[in-house]
C-alpha cells in the first residue's frame, strides 16, 4: 500500500486487513482498495428458505446484498443500508436481524428465512394475509420487513423475551398493542400504516392463542 494515500483509502485498506485476519478461509488477494487487485472473496454456504446456497462472495457483501443481488431474492428491501429503517429484516436461525448490518460471510451454516420463505401470492402466510386484510401497508416497500419482524415479534413474546414497555421484566410478556408497538418500532413505515399493522398482527396473535 502506498504511504501517500488519502485517509479514506487508509481506512478502507485497514478494514480489508481486519476482514482478512478474521477470515482464515478468505482468498487473500489484496491489502488495499486502491491497488488495482481484486478484492478478497471467500466461499460461504447457508440455507435460504430451506434451499442450500453456496456462494463465493466479496467479503464486503452484506447478507442483504447477497440475497438481493446474488440470489435475486429481492423481497428483502434496502431502505437505508445502515440499520436505521428495518426494511431488510430477515430471520437467521429464527431470530430477526437487519440483514444490512451483517456480512454474508458471517452466516456460514445459518438458516435464513426471508419474506419469500413465508408464503407466496397464491398461498399467503397468515401474517401476509392479515396485512392484506387490514391494509397494513401502502407503498409496500417496508412491508416484507414489517411482516418478518411481526412473525418474529410474536415468537419473541411467546419465548418470554422481555421488552422496554413491560412493568416487570421478570414477568412473562403479554400480547397487547403496547408490546407490539414497542417491539415493532425498528421497522419504519413512512406511509404510516402503523395503526393497521398493529391490527393485522393482533389478529394473527389472537388466532395463534386461540389455536394454542
Amino acid at each position: 500500500m502506498a504511504f501517500n494515500t488519502t485517509r479514506r483509502a487508509m481506512l478502507a485498506g485497514s478494514g480489508a486487513a481486519v476482514a482478512l485476519t478474521q477470515a482464515p478461509g478468505a482468498h487473500a488477494q489484496s491489502t488495499g482498495a486502491g491497488g488495482g487487485t481484486p478484492p478478497s472473496s471467500m466461499p460461504v454456504s447457508f440455507t435460504v428458505n430451506g434451499t442450500a446456497a453456496e456462494l463465493e462472495l466479496d467479503t464486503r457483501v452484506t447478507l442483504l446484498d447477497a440475497l438481493r443481488e446474488h440470489l435475486e431474492l429481492t423481497g428483502t428491501k434496502k431502505g437505508c443500508d445502515h440499520g436505521q429503517c428495518g426494511a431488510c429484516t430477515v430471520m437467521v436461525n429464527g431470530t430477526r436481524i437487519n440483514s444490512c448490518l451483517s456480512l454474508a460471510v458471517q452466516h456460514q451454516g445459518d438458516e435464513i428465512t426471508t419474506i419469500e420463505g413465508l408464503g407466496t401470492p397464491e398461498d399467503l402466510h397468515p401474517m401476509q394475509a392479515a396485512f392484506v386484510k387490514h391494509d397494513g401497508y401502502q407503498c409496500g416497500y417496508c412491508t416484507p420487513g414489517q411482516i418478518c419482524s411481526a412473525v418474529a415479534t410474536l415468537a419473541e413474546i411467546r419465548a418470554g423475551i422481555p421488552s422496554h414497555v413491560q412493568g416487570d421484566i421478570t414477568a412473562a410478556p403479554v400480547f397487547n398493542a403496547a408490546e407490539l408497538r414497542e417491539r415493532m418500532s425498528g421497522n419504519i413505515c413512512r406511509c404510516g400504516a402503523y395503526s393497521n399493522i398493529v391490527e393485522a398482527i393482533t389478529e394473527v396473535a389472537n388466532s395463534d392463542l386461540g389455536a394454542a
Binding site: 438481493r68 431474492l73 429481492t74 423481497g75 428483502t76 428491501k77 434496502k78 426471508t114 419474506i115 419469500e116 413465508l118 408464503g119 407466496t120 401470492p121 397464491e122 399467503l124 401476509q128 394475509a129 396485512f131 392484506v132 386484510k133 391494509d135 401497508y137 409496500g140 416497500y141 412491508t143 416484507p144 411482516i147
Partner: peptide, 19 residues
Amino acid sequence: TPRIDGPLKTTGTAPYAYE
C-alpha cells in the same frame, strides 16, 4: 376493497426499480 396488488407486496414479489 383489499388492494389487488396486496399479495405481491406482502410476499416481496412486486418488483421495484432496483430489482
